[in-house]
């Protein structure tokens, strides 16, 4: 089931949680909504589920307008960050809940119900503890029960709100790999919200980067990292060296001096230069784009972290330099960005 989100706007008082958002989620896809807190990603998820109502805009499920349908009728599976398990029901009954509350006409026979629930418990590998209560489970187990409960109703869409947010790092990694495998097996259209970029890039087919109620970029995980569309995306995903510059007729100036870098598509005015720390060559100061003085070196591994104080400013940048490359503290060096992007301010 594909999901269409058209011109959705949601305000809480004067604050626009979502500002004219457009998004298409393709059938069977696993999409991550990624953004800092307050970016509107959870609000968008709740609007898709029908737990919030937009001021304006439409939600389409498979081309059909879902805006008039209540949560009950949308047939979405929703997984909360803090599981929201029914603590007075056993694991089995938690998973069976959605089947038991069906209208009498479509209710399953007890034997069919048992079979369906047990199949789901096998899927989450928790059949052996079907009789336990939520308070007796670990965080990872609880989240898997919550997931099985959502899947029991055979949802058209699966929505997950920071599903791994409350778990410790190791369990989180295991569980997200497990979720990825699960999705590859059952292909239910899924949208999950996260503020963890690693999680989004590892699990999702496509990543939707959001900030301040707007979508900044939609793309494959590699694309949003390699080809960030906006300054926000470049700064938010991965590490960036960010240097304030000015652009004049397509040429980049740092502290008023020409840098030999070009930005033909950027309009004249203040801008910022974005470089990945490993996309920097260190060479002789002469003719280099930027100059600076090495302050400190540290780090282990294939590359060393080098702190460089830029000439003509008081900004220090951190650059990854291959271990083989000779650099010493105090040395004046030239800085040559191998790949860079310039985004106009404002």
């Amino acid at each position: 089931m594909d999901i269409g989100i058209h011109n959705v706007t949601k305000r809480f008082g004067a604050f626009a949680a979502l500002d004219n958002v457009d998004l298409e989620v393709r059938s069977g896809e696993l999409v991550a909504l990624l953004g800092p807190s307050g970016s509107g990603k959870t609000t968008l998820l709740r609007i898709i589920a029908g737990l919030e109502w937009p001021e304006q805009g439409r939600i389409l499920f498979g081309g059909e307008d879902a805006s008039e349908r209540s949560v009950r009728e949308r047939n979405v599976g929703f997984v909360f960050q803090h599981y929201a398990l029914f603590r007075h029901l056993s694991v089995f009954e938690n998973v069976a809940f959605g089947l038991r509350v069906r209208p009498r006409a479509s209710r399953l026979r007890e034997s069919e119900l048992r079979e369906r629930v047990e199949r789901l418990l096998d899927l989450i590998q928790l059949r052996s503890i079907a009789d336990r209560y939520p308070s007796q489970l670990s965080g990872g187990q609880r989240q898997r029960v919550a997931l099985a409960r959502a899947l029991a109703i055979e949802p058209r869409v699966l929505l997950l709100d920071e599903p791994f947010g409350a778990l410790d790092a190791k369990v989180r990694k295991e569980l997200r790999r497990w979720l990825r495998n699960l999705h590859d097996n059952i292909h239910v259209t899924s949208v999950f919200v996260t503020h963890d970029q690693e999680e989004a890039l590892e699990v999702a087919d496509r990543v939707v980067v959001m900030d301040e109620g707007r979508i900044e970029q939609i793309g494959a995980p590699q694309d949003v990292y390699e080809e960030p569309a906006t300054a926000f995306v470049h700064a938010f995903i991965g590490e960036s060296i960010i240097i304030p510059v000015t652009v004049e007729k397509g040429a980049v100036l740092h502290a008023g001096k020409p840098t030999s870098l070009g930005a033909p598509d950027v309009q004249t005015g203040p801008a910022r230069l974005f470089i990945r720390p490993y996309d920097v060559g260190i060479g002789m100061p002469v003719n280099a784009a930027l100059q600076g003085t090495v302050q400190r070196l540290h780090g282990i591994g294939a590359a060393r972290r080098v702190e460089i104080l830029l000439a003509d400013s008081d900004q220090t940048i951190e650059v990854d330099v291959p271990r083989a490359h000779e650099v010493t503290a105090g040395q004046r060096v030239g800085i040559v960005p191998l790949r860079y992007r310039v985004f106009a301010d404002g």
Partner: peptide
């Protein structure tokens, strides 16, 4: 009572009355 419990019950298809009798009342 956690509002999320009622929300999750609604997403699972429970009516208001079912949510009350099956989720809220037992607690």
């Amino acid at each position: 009572l956690d509002a999320e419990l009622e929300e999750v019950a609604a997403t699972l298809g429970a009516s208001r009355w079912q949510t009350f009798t099956r989720v809220i009342l037992p607690l």
